[in-house]
Amino acid sequence: MLIRALQAEMIKMRHSPMWLAFLLIPIIPAFMGTFNYLNNLSMLENKWYSLWTQHTLFACYFFLPVLIGIYASYLFRLEHANHNWNTVLTAPVPITQLFMAKLIMGWLMVILTQIWMGLLFIFSGLLAGLSDPIPPELPLWLLFGALGGMVVCALQLSLSLVIRSFAVPVGIALMGGIAGLALLSQGYGLYFPYALITLGMRANDPAAPMAVGEIAFLVACAIFTSGFCLFAITWLKRRDVVTG
């Protein structure tokens, strides 16, 4: 049943203008980061590692939370339109699987975004004239970044479920990203979902081990994701839908 729910999500996503956000938004931090790197070569001496800090500096705080916010809002957009909630919730599909299908769809998009960001990073480095080998840790940075992104995806899906607007949850995502910057600098990053992307991608110091430790990071991701999923599924089960 989950597979069929997932197939339904894929049909809903077909011909959507999502590619516009998916392709364009990650290009901006890549361009900004590379430009910043090339302008500060005297201070940024760690080549690929320095370029990574510049790429992720803007991406983690502003762009990725917003992009994931757009994905999540889009995934619930059709349900909130017209009287589609009535159709969706009277279909013989368990609510848990309905939500999980959306979550998996969102996660797929997060993973694809991370791959696209990785490619942009390599491409930017080559364009910037970096001849050293690409850092072997890159897949790990992207993987942990994706895990942080998955937490944000679960949170944004919960917000987009409750708030019947496309724009408001995206605005909240941006505010969350900015607040994450402040909280991370105070050492509370592990306890704030939006800061997990930055922690996971080692945006501040990619050469060093993760500031909070991998286990603590994974535990935080698991707790946050389960909490948000539980909230969303309970909300859908207990609350009457608003349509129209």
């Binding site: 203008p17 956000a21 364009l24 803007f58 502003f62 809002s73 496309f166 724009a167």
Partner: peptide
Amino acid sequence: ANQMVPMTLGLIGGFI
């Protein structure tokens, strides 16, 4: 009608 388009354009504009 699809509010994703203005939202994305607005955000891209803000970042630029």
